[in-house]
Simulated assay, not measured.
Amino acid sequence: MTDTPSRSRDLQARAVALLWRSLARRRLSTLWRLARLVGPLVQGISRREREVTRINLAEVYAERSETARRRLRRESLVHSSATMLELGFAWLGPADRVEASILEVHGRELLDEARAGGRGVIVLAPHFGNWEVLNFWLSGHFPFTAMYEPPKLTALDPLIRRGRERQGARLVPTTSRGVAALLKALKRSEAVGILPDQVPHWGSGVFAPFFGRPAYTATLLPKLVARTEARVVTGVARRLPGRGFAIHFLPADERVYAPDEATSAAGVNASVEATIALAPAQYQWEYKRYRKTPEEAEGRPDFKRFRLY
């Protein structure tokens, strides 16, 4: 007897893969026009995305007027829609077309100088602009390793892996084995990518301010820095609507190098804030960055320091 949920997931995965392949053939200008149509639909139909974005923006930009925040919310949902529509382009589009879409690169010297000095580079890549285009560029220009968690629709895993690895990136699991692979890559003076704005599991982070409010933040970074003396930069692919992308690498806040985990985490969040300032509408505000709270942490047996394996 056929497993109905499994069959349903397979059908969903095939539909998504077909959509990505179709969108991969479209021009970026066409995808941007589609995003401008889809964004308002998301705002109107998806209460979750609309409300989480509204709450986050009210928290972060309390000094702005309600009208300004509402405008930013609309722009943010359009950019988030564009990112989803561009996945097929980033993973499946001809490599020369993706490369040609990267119209500007700022701050590359930060990576070159670190590697020339025999140091690895940790790239903090927040959910800003199109992070898959950033991965494409990094893996095409540097030996690059990044952590990877398979999608919920497991049938999509081979397609996503091929897309992310096609320029030479090495994907490693979000486990102790993956952490060990990052350490080895950094000791070889290579580049590694870390998502600095995902909420980690309890026991794997500390609370640090993010736009003035406590956010549970991963503590992997200070361990990697302490063991490798790597340099840290933030990296994003800022969307140039309908035209392409501008890659930006910025020096991380100096606190990221502190051995104290809370201080380092504060530096990570400050680094992300500085990147968001490039174009606030291009940050993924519909993510529940504050969903874990200090009050919730009190008394938890697993609320402890992260151990690097």
Rank of each mutant, 00 (worst) to 15 (best):
Thr175Phe: 14
Leu159Glu: 07
Thr228Ala: 06
Gln12Lys: 04
Asn269Val: 05
Arg239Thr: 11
Leu85Ile: 09
Ile160Asp: 02
Asp253Phe: 07
Ala17Thr: 00
Arg239Pro: 06
Asn56Gly: 07
Gln43Asp: 08
Lys187Pro: 03
Ala215Met: 08
Ala146Met: 15
Arg177Pro: 01
Arg231Ile: 12
Thr234Cys: 09
Ile247Thr: 01
Leu182Gly: 00
Ala17Asn: 04
Gly203Asp: 13
Gly107Ser: 06
Leu41Phe: 13
Thr4Ser: 01
Leu182Trp: 06
Ser176Asn: 02
Arg71Ile: 12
Phe136Cys: 05
Met84Arg: 00
Pro209His: 10
Gly203Glu: 09
Thr234His: 03
Val60Leu: 12
Lys292Ile: 03
Arg50Glu: 00
Met147Leu: 15
Asn130Arg: 02
Leu221Gln: 05
Val233Leu: 10
Arg300Ala: 08
Ala279Met: 07
Gln43Leu: 14
Arg300Thr: 08
Phe142Lys: 06
Thr2Ile: 15
Ser101His: 05
Pro94Asn: 05
Arg164Leu: 11
Gly93Met: 13
Thr2Ala: 13
Leu85Trp: 05
His141Asn: 10
Arg300Cys: 09
Leu18Val: 14
Pro294Gln: 09
Asp260Ala: 06
Ala181Trp: 05
Ile122Gln: 12
Ala281Pro: 01
Asp197Ile: 14
Asp302Glu: 15
Pro241Met: 07
Gly203Val: 08
Pro143Gln: 06
Arg300Ser: 07
Leu18Tyr: 08
Arg7Ser: 14
Ala114Arg: 00
Leu153Pro: 14
Gln282Glu: 08
Met147Lys: 01
Glu104Cys: 06
Glu104Asp: 07
Glu254His: 08
Pro158Phe: 13
Thr83His: 11
His106Asn: 12
Ser264Ile: 02
Arg243Val: 07
Trp91Phe: 10
Arg7Lys: 13
Gly118Lys: 03
Ile194Ser: 07
Leu224Phe: 04
Thr217Ser: 10
His141Met: 04
Ser29Pro: 00
Ala237Gly: 01
Glu99Tyr: 05
Leu23Lys: 06
Arg64Cys: 13
Arg26His: 15
Glu229Lys: 11
Arg69Lys: 07
Trp20Asn: 02
Phe249Val: 01
Ala24Arg: 08
Tyr283Ile: 14
Asn269Pro: 08
Glu59Ser: 11
Gly44Cys: 12
Arg14Cys: 12
Pro241Asp: 06
Arg166Met: 09
Ala279Gly: 01
Ser80Trp: 04
Ala15Thr: 09
Pro222Lys: 04
Ser6Trp: 09
Asp260Val: 02
Val172Ile: 13
Pro151Thr: 02
Leu31Ile: 06
Ala281Cys: 10
